[in-house]
Amino acid sequence: MGSHHSIHLHHHVSKQADIKHKKYVVTYLPVLIILALIVVLFGSYNFLNTKETTSTIGTNVPDFSLPPVKGELSGLNSGDFTGQISLISVFASWCDECQENHSVLVELTQQQQIPVYGLNYKDPPKDVRLWLDRHGNPFKKIGADLNGDVAASWGVYGLPEVFVINANGQVIYRHMGSINSEQFNRDILPLITQNERQTEHVFPQNTNEEKAVDPASKDL
């Protein structure tokens, strides 16, 4: 009789364990699946971003011309980037992450390290004007891309984005997402220094160049 009771008790405990196990599975399996999907999607997003960024390097700036944003005198066009290394920021007043970028750009222009241009993406004129007045205007020129076509020609599909352009009008760096001072000093500042040296090498200033002599002066 005691043996029968023990078997019954063991069966009851096993049944309770099975129920508890199934409860855990039902409760936590969906959570684990969601976490796994997040990891996969995040990895895919980073892969696509890296691939898109890499494929942009070395390409020419798209041909475009944009009107100025409200309150500015000059718009922005593709010819503004030739002859010197420069940086262009794609931003909007409604973009929360753009604020961190903007603070870095304001500091950058105060140090006068590189000309900074702005590509304002799908922003109501009054909103971007208020935003610039509130946070400062680091841009040499700003183009109003009201319908987003120019940003699309740059391959932009998320804000903020930063491009560095060399003196020949080619993209030499692209960053998707917000950028801080540490990232700028690590990734962009060496490019500025390197390309400035290359420009000096291509267009050296010859201080020993002899003045042209008028042939007629030889006869005097």
Score class of each variant (00 low, 15 high):
1 M>F: 10
2 G>D: 07
2 G>K: 15
2 G>C: 02
6 S>C: 03
6 S>E: 05
8 H>A: 13
9 L>R: 02
11 H>Y: 03
12 H>E: 09
15 K>Q: 07
16 Q>P: 11
17 A>W: 08
17 A>K: 08
21 H>V: 02
22 K>P: 10
23 K>G: 11
24 Y>M: 02
26 V>K: 09
29 L>I: 11
31 V>I: 04
32 L>S: 07
36 A>F: 14
36 A>R: 12
38 I>Q: 02
38 I>A: 03
39 V>G: 11
40 V>G: 06
41 L>V: 07
42 F>I: 04
42 F>H: 09
43 G>A: 08
45 Y>N: 01
45 Y>V: 05
46 N>F: 13
47 F>P: 00
48 L>V: 15
49 N>Y: 05
50 T>F: 05
50 T>C: 04
51 K>Q: 15
51 K>C: 08
52 E>G: 03
53 T>S: 10
54 T>V: 07
54 T>Q: 05
55 S>A: 12
56 T>W: 02
57 I>V: 02
58 G>W: 03
60 N>P: 15
60 N>L: 10
62 P>V: 04
63 D>H: 14
66 L>G: 01
71 G>L: 07
72 E>P: 05
74 S>H: 05
76 L>M: 12
76 L>H: 13
78 S>Y: 13
79 G>F: 09
83 G>H: 10
84 Q>N: 12
84 Q>P: 02
90 V>S: 06
90 V>P: 00
91 F>E: 03
91 F>D: 07
91 F>Y: 03
95 C>T: 00
95 C>G: 00
97 E>A: 06
100 E>C: 01
102 H>R: 07
102 H>S: 09
103 S>V: 06
104 V>Y: 01
105 L>K: 00
105 L>F: 01
112 Q>W: 10
112 Q>G: 15
113 Q>Y: 02
113 Q>D: 09
116 V>W: 10
117 Y>I: 06
117 Y>P: 09
118 G>N: 08
118 G>D: 04
120 N>F: 01
122 K>E: 05
127 D>S: 14
127 D>I: 14
127 D>P: 14
129 R>V: 14
137 N>Y: 08
137 N>M: 10
137 N>R: 05
138 P>I: 13
141 K>G: 02
143 G>C: 00
148 G>W: 09
148 G>I: 09
149 D>Q: 08
151 A>T: 15
151 A>R: 15
155 G>H: 03
155 G>P: 02
156 V>H: 07
159 L>T: 00
159 L>N: 07
162 V>H: 05
162 V>D: 05
163 F>D: 01
163 F>S: 03
163 F>H: 02
166 N>Q: 10
166 N>Y: 12
170 Q>M: 15
171 V>L: 12
172 I>D: 15
172 I>S: 02
173 Y>Q: 06
175 H>V: 09
176 M>N: 01
177 G>W: 10
182 E>I: 14
183 Q>Y: 11
184 F>A: 13
188 I>V: 04
189 L>W: 13
189 L>D: 12
189 L>G: 11
191 L>E: 02
192 I>R: 04
192 I>Q: 06
193 T>G: 12
195 N>V: 11
197 R>F: 14
201 H>I: 14
202 V>F: 11
203 F>Q: 10
205 Q>E: 12
207 T>Y: 13
209 E>M: 12
209 E>K: 13
210 E>A: 13
211 K>T: 14
211 K>H: 12
211 K>R: 12
212 A>N: 04
218 K>P: 01
219 D>I: 13
